[in-house]
Design a binder for these strands. Structure first.
Length: 820
RNA sequence: GCCGAAGUGGCGGAACUGGUAGACGCGCCGGACUCAAAAUCCGGUUCCCCUCGGGGAGUGUGGGUUCGAUUCCCACCUUCGGCACCA
């Protein structure tokens, strides 16, 4: 008996990683010109690229192992698989990490990238390293700038002064998407409101497309689509033009309830509304109103949202266009300047906020909509919740109309009078892209007294990020200190110009990286359209749900614009999206402060990368949250060792290559074929990664129980082959031991349909739906025969109590149910 | 408040189109091997009742459809996630 060598993952994993490296096993060149037409044999898998501020964590391991399993399977099924990798390297977290360590952001970031790359190689992921990119390299951000300029030319990148969110800790503005509950998404500091001139992308122009083209995203998780829908927040309504009594100045409002127009008993302006000072100028109310405006400005966003509603009367009135009624104009900070027109008509009977305000200040509450049956809500002064089947009351000529019709009729009437129109409101705001920080992509614009904001000509790109002595955040961009760099001739007139010193939000960098992968070395355009149109849209995008809004919305927006620029032939970048769950550690969210961070690399040192990969996917459904248990990886380790022994036993028993007998028909052979079918179907169709492992475990258990079965060798080879996407080093080593070569490119096994069915089946016998006996019969036994066999059963007879069967239900090969 | 997802043994989970609930793994119990331990292997493991044979209950709760429901329908409870002064 030969002594079996021990399974030593460290040696095996190093060995095969070297082989794959030397052979460039996973490098996929772009197809030649003639091949670019046919998309059917390609698959493009992208996992969200790692952010270069630290090391690899469990989330990455899950993310990239899912992608790896899918890629191995598809590659072995004969598809041309593109699977690249890169680094999201610019931005706040990388810069903050550098500041904390006291090094230059570039040095720290590039060191982090080296670590991450090393760790990714250690995990054995089959990545095409020839396409590696990083967003902080000039070869990449040159094209980020180039794209910015195309947006600028189209008016999709513009500067405006606006109320913006400011993070006092990170000393920069934030996009709306980066504010969570009034706090900075990154550092958690409470966000302040400021009025500043900043760069924006006009993503609101694409609100409808971003909503409507979700149709093209059938394979996206419902929760992500819902979150994007909520974020965009489209609501149908009307623009209604009130006028200031006396001056006749127009005061438009947006409302989703034009049917309640007759119930408007006051009017409210946001404190920041430009008309406020003018309205009260020289009146007795001026002091109080301007005082209120100052106080509102000093309040934090959070305070504004949580305090009791308050406001101040301006002394002026607005005229309601439907009935000519004069209603008092108030200023209150529960009205937001950034939504709608920054002004509202207040209908206290039908809006909770207006109701609270009216109660506090003793303003009339007039009900204008009531349930059609005339039932509830008739007592004056009450807030009436919106219900089905309502009709208008107290609404002049519109009284009696059902509410939906009232909406339409009033809107049409306003339209005819030139006092309003049907319109759509969105929650989505333009994407604020400039940042007052050092470590980012410079915005390629020169400001000139004479010409304004002038684009840097394409042939002068990239605008390199200058070296500065002090890159600490201080409320204005550190680039402003690089005087030599800032002072530059205006590209338009040649006069004195100054470079834009803000840098771009890092989400700009990551909005197009998945296209650059296709053509990473291109130095005369961001990518070749032909090549991009071949690989994209991405067949499978994989990443965490934390990007459900931010990155995924931005990347969709970019793709649509690039499509309209003629750079791409498609409108949605990611045909299918998979969101993996979060991995917690022993029941709690992993965090450095709790000290419960599970470092995957440490476990790879102890058990090997293959065991870590297996356990990570075996924990549970990959799209749900999972909890890391140390005992669990022991199970993965034991499983690999069991398969190791089983395969060695078979190799010793049946000799070298070619000994596997695929044709034999035994119970074990059938089990092997069913396993092939299940593993393939679960991964490729059902996107399940844990059940295939369980299926292979079952197969291995079966082989172990009958090692002398004529199909044992074949079954062992099948188990090795099926586990290869999960444990590629381990499988490769066993494959070699079994006398074969190059499992990574060996065709994926195909189940023999003839062996997928059992010849003997167990048929369950129920009496009144309760299990009473089991029959072991040949598959295909007729219904009559099954009933006869069932009735012949003593156990069944005992439960029939002599009663006559009223009805029998037969499911062939599965069950007989006798009803008495 | 609005929107979404989910509730199954001691634990992670399986059961795909309504048809044997608890696969697979962890943990635990018992046994074999060993001087002993580790490793490995074998058996058991939803709960309750029972001497054996077996019987009863059971997938968050309450109803319903069905010969039959974890699966379909209605109502509710709980947990998690997102949005929220959005007019």
């Amino acid at each position: 008996m030969e002594t079996m060598e021990r399974y030593d993952p460290q040696v095996i994993e190093a060995k095969w990683q070297q082989v794959w490296d030397a052979e460039q096993a996973f490098v996929v060149p772009n197809p030649g010109p003639g091949e670019l037409v046919d998309h059917r044999d390609k698959t493009y898998v992208v996992e969200m690229l790692p952010y270069a501020s630290g090391e690899l964590h469990m989330g990455h391991v899950l993310n990239y192992t899912i992608g790896d399993v899918l890629c191995h399977l598809r590659r072995r099924r004969g598809l041309r698989v593109l699977r690249p990798m890169g680094y999201d390297a610019f931005g706040l977290p990388a810069e903050n990490a550098a500041i904390k360590e006291g090094g230059h952001p570039r040095v720290i970031t590039e060191r982090n990238i080296r670590t991450i790359r090393e760790q990714m190689r250690r995990m054995g992921w089959a990545i095409d390293w020839s396409r590696e990119i990083s967003s902080h390299e000039p070869e990449y951000y040159r094209w980020t700038q180039w794209l910015f300029l195309r947006f600028f030319e189209r008016g999709l990148a513009y500067r405006k002064e606006a109320a913006v969110k400011w993070c006092p800790n990170d000393q920069t503005v934030l996009a709306n998407e980066q504010v969570i509950d009034g706090h900075c998404e990154r550092c958690g500091a409470e966000v302040e409101a400021k009025s500043l001139t900043q760069w924006f992308f006009k993503i609101t122009d694409y609100a409808d497309e971003l909503l409507d083209e979700m149709e093209l995203l059938e394979q996206w998780p419902e929760r992500v689509l819902t979150m994007q829908r909520n974020w965009i927040g489209r609501s149908q309504g009307a623009r209604v033009v009130f006028t200031v009594e006396g001056s006749g100045e127009e005061l438009p409002v947006f409302t989703t309830r034009p049917d309640t127009l007759f119930g408007a008993t006051f009017f409210v302006l946001a404190p920041e509304h430009p008309l406020v000072p003018e309205l009260v100028a020289g009146t007795e109310h001026e002091g109080a109103v301007l005082d209120y405006v100052r106080h509102a400005a000093a309040r934090s966003t959070v305070e504004r949202e949580t305090k009791e509603k308050d406001g101040v009367f301006t002394g002026r009135h607005a005229v309601n266009p439907v009935n000519g009624e004069s209603i008092p104009i108030w200023v209150a900070d529960y009205v937001l300047i950034e939504y709608g027109t920054g002004a509202i008509m207040a209908v206290p009977a039908h809006d909770e906020r207006d109701h609270a305000f009216a109660e506090r200040y003793g303003i009339e509450i007039r009900q204008v909509v009531a349930p059609a049956d005339g039932g509830a809500g008739q007592d004056e002064g009450a807030f009436v919740a919106h219900t089905e089947n309502e009709v208008l009351v107290n609404s002049g000529g519109f009284t009696g109309l059902p509410a939906p019709e009232g909406k339409r009729a009033i809107t049409e009437w306003l339209s005819a009078q030139g006092k309003g129109e049907a319109t759509v409101g969105y929650r989505l705001r333009d994407w604020l892209l400039s940042r007052q920080r050092y470590w980012g992509c410079p915005i390629p614009i020169v400001h000139c007294e004479a010409c304004g904001a002038v684009p840097v000509p394409d042939d002068q790109l990239p605008v390199l990020l200058p070296e500065v002595e002090d890159y600490m955040p201080k409320g204005r961009s550190p680039l402003a200190a690089a005087e030599d760099w800032v002072a530059v001739a205006c590209p338009a007139c040649g006069g004195a110009g100054r470079r834009e010193t803000d840098t771009m939000d890092t989400f700009v960098d990551s909005s197009w990286y998945f296209i650059r992968y296709c053509d990473p070395g291109n130095d005369h355009e961001p990518f070749s359209r032909e090549i991009a149109d071949y690989w994209l849209p991405v067949n499978q995008y994989i990443g965490g749900v934390e990007h459900a809004i931010l990155h995924l919305l931005y990347a969709r927006f970019f793709t649509k614009v690039m499509n309209e620029l003629g750079l791409l032939g498609f409108r949605e970048p990611f045909a299918r999206l998979f969101n993996q769950g979060m991995i917690t550690a022993h029941g709690a969210k992993m965090s450095k402060s709790k000290g419960n961070v599970v470092n995957p690399l440490e476990y790879a040192e102890r058990y090997g990368a293959d065991a870590v990969r297996i356990y990570t996917l075996f924990m549970g459904p990959a799209d749900e949250d999972m909890d890391w248990q140390d005992a669990g990886i022991d199970g993965a380790w034991r499983f690999l060792n069991r398969l190791w022994r089983v395969a060695h036993e078979q190799a010793a028993q049946t000799g070298g290559a070619g000994a596997a007998e695929a044709g034999v028909d035994t119970a074990l052979a059938r089990k092997a074929h069913r396993t092939i079918a299940k593993v393939t179907d679960d991964i490729d169709r059902r996107f399940l990664f844990h059940t295939p492992i369980a299926a292979v475990m079952e197969l291995v258990n079966e082989i172990q129980r009958s090692p002398d079965d004529p199909a044992a060798r074949f079954s062992a080879e099948t188990a090795v082959s099926l586990i290869q996407p999960y444990a590629p080093h381990f499988a490769e080593e066993l494959w070699q031991h079994l006398g074969h070569e190059r499992l990574w490119e060996h065709p994926w096994p195909v189940a023999d349909p003839a062996l997928l069915v059992e010849d003997q089946v167990e048929v369950v016998v129920q009496v009144n739906g309760k299990l009473r006996d089991r029959l072991h019969v040949p598959a295909g036994t007729s219904e009559e025969e099954l009933v006869a066999l069932a009735l012949a059963s003593e156990r069944v007879q005992a439960h029939l109590n002599g009663g006559e069967p009223r009805k029998t239900i037969v499911v062939p090969d599965r069950l007989v149910n006798i009803v008495v």
